[in-house]
Every structure is written in structure tokens, then in C-alpha cells.
Amino acid sequence: MRVQLPGGTLRTVEAEVMPVEELLALLGVNPVEVIVTRNGMLVPEDATAGGDDEIRLVRISHGG
């Protein structure tokens, strides 16, 4: 699957199916700090992702 990290960097992660939370742990991202979309749809972190999915992580905190 293709993962767009906060900031726009793209990563490819090879996995059949895995929980989004596990994917975030693999990428070193705390689920409390991001919103996740899967193929353009908002999903909770206990949803799964894999195969050809397009995952986008949006960081929620921008202030000082």
C-alpha cells in the first residue's frame, strides 16, 4: 500500500492486511496525533489497510 506521511512524504509498505494502528506504530506515528484516510475516506485506527490501499496521514496539531 502507499502511505502519504504528514508533510507529504510517500512510503510504500508491503502488507496483505494489517490494522491501521499497527501501520502507524511501524511508521513511528502516534494515532492520537493524526487523522487517517483510506482511499479518501476517514477511518478509525482499528480499521485495516493493505493491498493497493492509499493511506494518508494528516497531522492534527499545527500551533505553537
Binding site: 483510506r38 476517514l42 478509525p44 480499521a47 485495516t48 493493505g50 493497493d52
Partner: peptide, 18 residues
């Protein structure tokens, strides 16, 4: 694509959870 069985549903209705 990931199978639909992996979609969690809202605790208050049957719509897809976000």
C-alpha cells in the same frame, strides 16, 4: 482493495465509523 468486513460501524447506528 481491503474487504468490507474490516469496516467498523458506529456504536449509535450502522453507518461506517470515522
Amino acid at each position: 482493495p481491503v474487504p468490507a468486513r474490516d469496516r467498523a460501524t458506529c456504536s449509535r447506528c450502522r453507518k461506517a465509523a470515522v
